[in-house]
Design a protein around this nucleic acid. Sequence first.
DNA 1: TTCGCAGTTATTGTATACAAGACTATTGAC
DNA 2: GTCAATAGTCTTGTATACAATAACTGCGAA
Lengths: 226, 226
Amino acid sequence: MTSNTFHKLRDDIENGIITGEFAPGERLDEVQLATRFGVSRTPIREALMQLSAIGLIEARPRRGAVVVDPGPNRIYEMFEVMAELEGMAGAMAARRHTEEDRAALLASHERCEHSAISEDADSYYYDNEIFHHAIYAASHSTFLAEQCATLHRRLRPYRRLQLRVRNRVKVSIGEHGGIIQAILDGDEAAARQRLRDHVAVQGDRFSDLVSNLSRRDVKKTAWSRE
Amino acid sequence: MTSNTFHKLRDDIENGIITGEFAPGERLDEVQLATRFGVSRTPIREALMQLSAIGLIEARPRRGAVVVDPGPNRIYEMFEVMAELEGMAGAMAARRHTEEDRAALLASHERCEHSAISEDADSYYYDNEIFHHAIYAASHSTFLAEQCATLHRRLRPYRRLQLRVRNRVKVSIGEHGGIIQAILDGDEAAARQRLRDHVAVQGDRFSDLVSNLSRRDVKKTAWSRE
DNA sequence: TTCGCAGTTATTGTATACAAGACTATTGAC
DNA sequence: GTCAATAGTCTTGTATACAATAACTGCGAA
């Protein structure tokens, strides 16, 4: 548990970005972060380097690091790729899922239904992640699972925005049911297609996303006046 | 041109890994690299941090960094994902390519044919990269293009191994022709399918890959005796 | 009043010094 | 003779000091 110092820093800052504590476009001051976390600048810099490599922040030479602010277009592109990767994971899961995968999928699906009924947005959000990770695991491709998990994580904040749309949770649950069935039936094509559609931000959902983004932007500018 | 010091370091080490100068499993000593590049340990560490975040090296706490050694299985998985992403890029390129994209695709294809005829393996390898990047660009999804480029880069060494297989270059050129045609015809499904098949490591090609990998391993152990 | 230049300040980039954990070798005991 | 424990060394992780550059502010001139 020694070098977890810097590892923990990385996760903390990453979480700060994902939760919106560090708003997109915000400058990340090294000494400020250092004093905040009670460490020197060195481990902070190393954490920022990693985040920069992942693409969460942009390190401009001699000008500090800022949280990247992907425009609606780029966010849409990210969801597009995510949809394709999830579809792929679904197809592979349909072909390769084991008895344990089947149990995990069903269990996570039930938990999602439970949270949806209790209308607890946060717990649904959490259980939804478990559901998707169960699919990644069932694909039995560790590399694909990692790629999916990484992208899923990066899209977290926007996924969260989407859940605010009226009835989205209910619709989502219904889609989950169809996905589970396709996977357990071993129907690759259906699993791929349903997961693609489930993840993709198409039609109305895109305008909903943009609308939510701009609402968040207002809050961001309010913050930046502090 | 100021902070390019560390940026250059990162690229240099990355290149060293990709070209095989730093063999998989090899330990990367910080002071050794520092003296070699004539800098202090600090920028070296920052470069290693980025490579660790990308997944090219594994940083074990207090025990140094080693070049990751993906087994045949993982390499296969990476090609699988690459095939899917390239197929996606091809489908989007078929739908969205502009007149400039068309020109770039045809030009890069011709260059590939030229290198293939002259049987210059290195220049074919290089022109092949340009061809694929032309497809990424034609997809007009910057995020997808970035993802493809990153994965393409990581698979470089293994791609190179594959070209050593007899007749692979000739077959590859033929596939390129079909891909170009599908894209320019606007045939999304065909473009996706042909690119998938072109990239995927299926059937004999997988055993060829494994065979070449083990041959490389022999060379690696020979190196490590130096 | 506004634009431009220069000096100052503040922040990043790099080096070095110090601390702490892991590997190794040697010695002692069984 | 072999195994284990301890001391020593080596390497990584962190802090601090110094250097260099970009941003800012203030002053002056057009």
